[in-house]
């Protein structure tokens, strides 16, 4: 989880990623930032994020993202 938070902070240091729960719904992360973030996630966690996973529910909070990463790792 700390690794993910580091990635997020690098993208935008001004956002409180630990507590924010509407990153997509409140348009804090736009679609281009999502692209950068996914590239980071794939590199750091050795997973492939398919387009189908890019839904608000998976990216609204750091927690949701981490759950998605764990699931993708599990699925191999």
């Amino acid at each position: 989880m700390d690794e993910l938070l580091d990635l997020l902070r690098e993208l935008d240091p001004e956002v409180d990623f630990e507590n924010e729960e509407a990153l997509i719904d409140d348009r804090i992360l736009d679609s281009l930032t999502i692209l950068a973030l996914i590239a980071d996630i794939e590199e750091t966690f050795d997973v492939t994020v398919p387009a189908v996973e890019i839904v608000p529910a998976n990216f609204n909070s750091a927690k949701a993202m981490y759950e998605m990463i764990e699931r993708l790792q599990e699925e191999g």
Partner: peptide, 19 residues
Amino acid sequence: RDYVFYPVSMSAPVKKLTT
């Protein structure tokens, strides 16, 4: 966004380009 933008961005060649 859901059926064109993300699938194109997540396709292997475009991902490579982004990286």
